[in-house]
Amino acid sequence: MNKYWHVVTLGIQSTLVYRVNFLVRALFGLVPLLALILLWRAIFEGRADANLGGYQLAEVVTYYLIVNVVVALTAVTEDDWQIAADIKDGKISQFLLKPIDYLSYRFCLFAAGRLVYTAAAILPTAAFLWFQRDAFLSPASGTHFAAFLLSLCLTALLQFFISFTMALLAFWVLEVATFIFILFAFEYMAGGHMFPLDMLPPTILSLLNLTPFPYMLYFPVQVYLGRIDGASLAQGLGIQAFWVAAAYLLARVVWGRGIRHYSAVGG
């Protein structure tokens, strides 16, 4: 366990180099977020107490704000590219020789990266939340908030395992970027980045609910807003945990096969 702790501290040190980069990212990221919120405010204008697709203005605004927070805390940004590059350049060979598990190693770096990113983004994000405070709702209840935090951790795991598996495609194909972008596009829509998924026609929503995508972002945000309760909350957490386990197993299986296929180019 101790060695993985070292990886985390190493990861923190090496990502600290990018702290300004992270700050700029967080700041730039607020521009489209603000634009989206202003767009919804314009839609609600003149009918402030309206209910659009089951959402009031404050709920829509809070939805986007919490989406942004969840993304900052859980999204995989550089890790998948680095893993793919490790494989392509043959750097992965050194990990096969060391008594270290590559998946765990990568997870430590991912966690370190998110920690540093959160530290860099916390000030601009907090300022932004303050700025939007007239429409920012606090969590529906203590229970919902606790469930939200639990779901947030599961989301981070799910995000990481899926990205890890996608990056492992580099064992078989030269250029994984396109595959990663295609998956990201699906996740962007089906995860609820762009709009709350229950604004879609119910049949499409029930189809999406059969995929892991809503559990990569939409689900924790719904929990925060208190739009999921009681039995369906417990059930949702169960399904999310199932997807995490499935994604973990898939990552392990693909890794095992990839290693057998690997020919250490340049290594």
């Binding site: 839609i43 659009l52 697709g53 762009m194 709009f195 604004m199 879609l200 026609p201």
Partner: peptide, 8 residues
């Protein structure tokens, strides 16, 4: 995205 907005 626009189609969803204009549903509502």
């Amino acid at each position: 995205f626009m189609a969803v907005i204009y549903r509502h």
